[in-house]
Design a protein around this nucleic acid. Sequence first.
RNA 1: GCGGAUGUGGUGAAAUUGGUAUACACGCCAGACUUAGGAUCUGGUGCCGCAAGGCGUGGAGGUUCAAGUCCUCUCAUCCGCACCA
Length: 817
Amino acid sequence: MDYISADIEKKWQNYWKENDSFEPSEDFTLEKKYILSMFPFPSGRLHMGHVRNYSISDALARYHRQQGKNVLHPIGFDSFGMPAENAAIKNGSHPKGWTYDNIDYMKNEFYALGFSFSRKREMATSDELYTKFEQSFIIDMYEKGLLYREKGMLNWCPNDQTVLANEQVVDGCCWRCDTPIEKKDMNQYYFKITQYSDELLDDLKELEKGWPKQVLTMQENWIGKSNGLAFDLLFDDESKAKLNSMFESFDVFTTRPDTIYGVSYTALAPEHAIVTYMCENKLLDEATIAQIIKMKNTSSIDRQKEKAGLPLGLNVIHPLTGKIVPVWIANFVLMDYGSGAVMAVPAHDDRDYDFAKKYDLPINAVIKAKDAESDVSEKAFTDAGVLFNSGEFDGLNSKKSQYNIIKMFEEKKIGAKTTNYKLKDWGVSRQRYWGAPIPFIHCEDCGLVMEKKENLPIALPDDVEINGEGSPLENHPTWKHCKCSVCGKDAVRETDTMDTFVQSSWYFLRFCASPETLKNTAFTKEEISYWMGVDHYVGGIEHAILHLLYARFFTKVFRDLGYLDFDEPFDKLLTQGMVLKDGTKMSKSKGNTVDPDAIIAKYGADTARLFILFAAPPTQELEWNDSAVEGSHKFIKRFFDRASNVKKTETKPKIDHSSLSKEEKTARKKVYEALKRSEEVFKERYTFNTMIAGVMEAVNALNLQSNADVWSEGYWILASIMEPVIPHTCWDISNEYFSLNNLTKQEILEEVFIEDSITLGVAINGKNRGEIEVDLTATKEEILTLAKEKVKKYLEDKTIIKEIVVPKKLVNFVVKG
RNA sequence: GCGGAUGUGGUGAAAUUGGUAUACACGCCAGACUUAGGAUCUGGUGCCGCAAGGCGUGGAGGUUCAAGUCCUCUCAUCCGCACCA
């Protein structure tokens, strides 16, 4: 029978659909596996990155199903978001229609690839029920004080006409459209993620077993915890008078209190309150004010190009020496880190050094290397060292003095040990239409109030005009008008919608809901405690910070709200590498994409899956190679054709190993080696390429013999091993020859690994010179005699100094002369 | 600058604890079958060399009977963060 991929694949896809083959059981006494791939945005069609992502998770899901586990392998769509609106603006389509059409199309693509998803748990985050539950959680979070509204300087993308979270600003530009962001003073809703900074950082330890180190490090850096000293710098009397006695002091933070005797100036961020006061009250001359305004309006990228600043004509008093220290304004001081002000120690900080050199400020060295002279004439000395010119702390090392200096500040009550984080609260409101509305109401009398839970969902209106100008909800004639949930008076709805990352922060919990639960509640605690945590989470490294941090945050919040009782959502994280063509990432703009549909049409889904899992380990980049795809296709055909050597059987044949020929024994050994490899791969290594190579070797070995029982046993096992990779082909073979009985856990037979003789390498001075075959029972002396005979010609005129026999591996002679 | 990785044939890549480097595949070469071959099958293929032999895992050292694997230094590439005080 010829291998016709289209027929076979269609046949089994229909079979799986009709038989609900991949629905998880509701029996919570079974051992479970929750296998999840990061769900896609419904952009229109699948790309190869998707195919790789789901090929990996599908292989895991199918393997564990064979092992008898209760497997949850769901699929959904992260369906809110800007592209739907952009398409609306471009083609006049409606975001809803566009989104759901795309979902339908992509679902078909998924099932054409044979992915074993639970069809009954399919969902999209733009479904009204999803919005309903999410809005309910938002209200819970507000009541807990984890959501607040505040005016602030926000990241504004002028192209997308919306605010962005800090995490969504990449190199000063919008993460989505690359437009340089602007700062805009606006009201915004924030999740208090900073309340969980320490826990988000500390719990990374729990993840060390299951997450790539790289991701852990990225999260750690993003949270950016640093310990140091915070203290007040007091103005002198003259400066206080200049400031109309409005300010006594300002607060600074340092991680290097050991350098404090080297302070030679201090610097404020251009946005600092004192600077703002001075500008507003014209306490500086006009030219200076103009320069400050210019500095503030400079983009963050330009601000990094060169250090710049101005003296403010103010002085503070050094807290330890009592000396007068000038106050500057400096463009490198960031308003949103620490207090927006720094003590400057040019001798021991590169930035302070550059600035001091430029403006000719004093450079006072106070730390030197242990056994060297201090030299800061060329550059700052930023290492730890020994203190000098530091009063009572002279001679102490950096570490010791940091401790002592902080202690002294605390005793004198002029400063305190302080921890700072780079992590900021998560701004979640977006001025867009295609998102989940934030369920709040603005009432003239009552202020900001929550919508009543019984009124949820606050759904989006369908009749909107989307033209890219302003917020479509804000511009809608009637939608925003409502009654206050507290006093009943006329009021207005919040027209901002939520960041789409909010939806992806809890979708993995929603998947735990049974088809029954789905209709009524978000999920039940019982279901969640059974299915969570996710055993394998598969997705792209690009989500290392944003999505994974937010999802971890939501899990902790839901725990504190009583919805669940664990700390971390994802036990194991597998970050897949990119799919490349011609050395660069596949992308439409580069025109180097390969369309999955075309590959399926030409070779079939199994070929695409096999190539993707065979060409490289999943965490590594994958270079697309047309002829290697061809090769994968050839293997499947050969695998299918050679199945004709198999004798039909309902059970695995029993074979008397001792009666077999050498070729037959080798074939069996290779088959069972492949099985061993498969277990390691699925349990620990996930290097599917090596497992597939093992199967290929086994097929090659089977082909060198003609014992029908050996063929049958071989295929019984190999079709089971390969089913997670090329499911259609394997189900077809299994059905034809084994009545599908072999797609279960396979037992390893140790007898096939026992051999009567073994091959040993013979080396001289570590260099391989030949090999000998010896009896299993051979003694060391016998082996040595045989080995010496084998490499006789290399031993002439030489003296053997040492003879090493490594059992079952090799013999090594150390020779001289 | 800080952090994380990766360097092995013409190519994608194997080598799980130090033990015969290059499994498996792609490509290439040769042969068979064929009207034909971009199908299928068989064999060959690390490099230099006619051979004997020598050399080979980015580079330089080291430990060891034995190093792709361990240690020191170094080079290159990729990724992430970045004026975070």
